[in-house]
Amino acid sequence: MKRLHGITTAMVTPFTAEGAVNLEQVEALTEFLIGKGVHALFPLGTTGEMVRLSTAERKQIAETVIRTAAGRVTVYIHAGAATQSDTIELARHAQASGADGIGVVTPQFLGANERELEHYYVTLSRRLPEDFPIYLYNIPQCSANDLPTAVAERVAEQCANVVGIKYSYPDFLRTNEYLAIRDGRFSVMQGADRLLLPALAMGCDGVISGVSCVYPEPFVAVYNAYQAGDLAEARRLQRIAIQYCETLRSGSNMSYFKEALKLRGIDVGHMRAPQLDLPEREVEALRQALAELPRV
């Protein structure tokens, strides 16, 4: 089973001014990211405004990314949805469309106890082929449901196709607990862009990064330097990557990502309501701040 590694980019979703999904720009963004050397793509997650998309739209985007990537990089489709039935439908669609695997966020908004979390993932796993890989996805600050290590471990024990977890919270104690699942054979991808280098040092396989959707270069450079054993260079590059994270607000407002991509010549359009585009004065401030950042 193909696992995630290195710089896995969480993709934004392009929209037209009228609010429709822009599949032409999905293709352009996919090509841009592959050309910049990212190792994998992760569309339709938090960065992709997943909660603003219909099931039909998510299927169209998944098909477009998979077709455009054409096997050049690993593609995992985020399939987590508001209902279990929609999650299963999206997961099966991803598998049938040729995705390398899926990620699935914990149930959202309404509280889920440990028994419910375990049942959710085990049920999903059993509706998919045993050799089709699944990453759990824990982002408690957005989903309102934390995924305890004990639950992740029980799910992994029952489900051979649950191969890892994306953990989008800056807690290295919990990260270390996840890394111990299956005697260290459980893949952990950090979701906090600023923590790429320390996460690699701990044993994580890489980062699922939203900021790398706009500026892949510093993140790819950090990973390559670390893999080459040049820790001093990796540290230097990590400091640069953090500057990009701070300037782009690290995903707290995806409109920064979209405006910065436009400045790079990739017109991913607009936010989908109720989120709004940046006002012009903030776009100009962003332009100036990005121009002052060091290039890699």
Rank of each mutant, 00 (worst) to 15 (best):
V155F: 13
R126W: 02
F15R: 01
L276M: 14
Q275A: 13
L23F: 06
A201F: 01
L293V: 06
E118P: 03
L4D: 04
R239V: 06
G80K: 10
R67W: 01
Y226I: 01
E57S: 04
I7S: 01
L290N: 12
T74N: 13
A79C: 10
V21T: 05
Q108S: 13
T8A: 15
V75S: 05
F186Q: 11
A241F: 11
L263F: 14
R67F: 00
A62I: 00
D131R: 10
Q288W: 05
E177F: 09
N224H: 12
A289D: 11
L117Q: 03
F42K: 02
S143C: 02
G101A: 05
T13R: 03
L4S: 09
A228R: 15
R127P: 00
D146I: 04
L23H: 10
R281F: 14
F15D: 03
T175P: 04
P274C: 14
G191S: 05
V105H: 06
I102N: 06
F42N: 04
L4I: 03
G19Q: 09
L231M: 07
H270V: 08
A150K: 14
P279A: 03
S252R: 15
V151H: 12
A96L: 09
V283T: 11
R72D: 13
A234Y: 02
A199Y: 01
Y244K: 01
E284V: 15
I61K: 01
R264V: 02
E157W: 04
E63M: 08
E24D: 15
V214F: 03
A285E: 14
L110Q: 09
A180R: 11
R3T: 15
F219H: 08
L110E: 15
T123N: 09
M189Y: 03
F109C: 07
Y167G: 09
Y169A: 09
G210A: 11
G206Q: 12
R58K: 15
Y121W: 04
Q275G: 02
M254V: 13
E233R: 14
L173Y: 12
A112M: 07
G265A: 08
Y244P: 00
A228P: 04
T149W: 08
A10F: 07
P43A: 00
Y226S: 02
P279S: 12
K166N: 03
N224M: 01
A20F: 15
M202F: 15
S212L: 12
G251Y: 06
